[in-house]
């Protein structure tokens, strides 16, 4: 059962010992330790005491290590060390990484559905779970978006600050379509158009690469990155509008919590995907990387980009429209 054969087997590349993992560990550990210290300083420390220095140092080490790590991998591929089998490992790795991201967003969407369909009505004494309402929030009316928290709506004995994580400040206006003054001034619509088009442009770039047309590839990839930048700018503008004009903040109760966490994590992922695509553009322009048959870095980034696009479609439906 174990007769060894060496016929037409392309050797699987197992790298020599490498300090990358340890450097990445140092970066990551400094980052999270620094972040925990900094955040604790903000919440529990004296004013002005919190310092993000360790966090920044950690992020710098981490980013530098990732840069070297990816550069090493790319150079190994150019040197012909990566077999077809290894490339398949990368493909599988990216698939399952994206699947893990899907599950991360699923947790936050799960919260949204739970609050809108179960916990919210229960707070307003509807359904089987609503019996506690007579003890806590009698008279509270539930609707979505929840513009007034139970604490503000009812107050009284149930509004002990300590038990409620502090005070809440209700928003004057929500971000949903129903409350937009003019459809053309409603930023999420433009963001939808931008992100959906960017999925098309990145696909056109891919077809250009498959045809061996690098010029077409570079052009359409640059367009994709530009659309990504535009999306992030509009998202920042939307947040500014929420905080400055609508009074919608993280402190606005569960509506603000779900809104900012869902769109915030999505926006962060757009930023990551945009950075990944921008790096692929640099590689193509300056390094002359990618051929019709070998362009995993670009392909993985484009999968990621399509993934954030799909998440946005769900956000648009369940956070903004419905």
């Amino acid at each position: 059962m174990t007769s060894q054969t060496s016929t037409d087997y392309e050797k699987y590349y197992v790298p020599e010992k490498s300090s990358l993992a340890v450097m990445a560990t140092i970066g990551l550990v400094l980052s999270v330790f620094g972040a925990a210290n900094f955040i604790n300083g903000l919440t529990f420390g004296e004013p002005g005491e919190a310092s993000p220095t360790i966090l920044y140092a950690g992020l710098f080490v981490f980013a530098a290590t990732l840069f070297v790590w990816f550069r090493t991998t790319i150079r190994e591929n150019i040197a012909g060390m990566a077999s077809g089998q290894l490339k398949k490992s990368y493909v599988l790795g990216m698939y399952w990484f994206i699947f893990s991201e899907v599950m991360f967003f699923a947790a936050f969407f799960g919260v949204l559905f739970y609050v809108r369909n179960l916990a919210g009505p229960w707070l307003a004494a509807e359904g089987e779970g609503g019996r506690m309402n007579y003890l806590l929030w009698e008279g509270f009316q539930f609707s979505w978006p929840m513009m007034q928290t139970p604490q503000e709506a009812v107050g009284g004995a149930a509004s002990q600050l300590i038990a409620n994580n502090g005070a809440f400040a209700s928003a004057k206006q929500s971000m949903s379509f129903a409350e937009a003054h003019h459809w053309y001034a409603w930023l999420p619509l433009w963001n939808t158009i931008i992100l959906l088009s960017s999925s098309v442009t990145v696909h056109i770039a891919h077809t250009g690469l498959l045809d061996g047309n690098k010029k077409k590839f570079n052009l359409w990839l640059a367009a994709t990155v530009a659309l990504g930048v535009l999306f992030v700018i509009l998202q920042v503008a939307e947040y500014y509008e929420a905080y400055a004009h609508f009074g919608l903040t993280l402190n606005s109760g569960i509506y603000g919590s779900t809104f900012f966490m869902l769109t915030g994590f999505h926006g962060f992922h757009v930023f990551m995907g945009m950075t990944m695509l921008a790096i692929q553009l640099m590689r193509s322009l300056r390094g002359g990387h990618f051929t019709a048959g070998d362009h995993f870095g670009f392909e993985a980034s484009s999968w990621y980009w399509h993934f954030v696009d799909v998440v946005w479609v769900f956000l648009f439906l369940f956070v903004y429209i419905l």
């Binding site: 919260v111 916990a119 707070l123 806590l136 929030w137 928290t149 139970p150 604490q151 149930a158 509004s159 038990a163 409620n164 994580n165 502090g166 809440f168 903040t249 993280l250 402190n251 109760g253 569960i254 603000g256 919590s257 900012f260 966490m261």
Partner: peptide, 9 residues
Amino acid sequence: GTSFFSAAG
């Protein structure tokens, strides 16, 4: 300041 796990919010 979010209120994921706080009924008051």
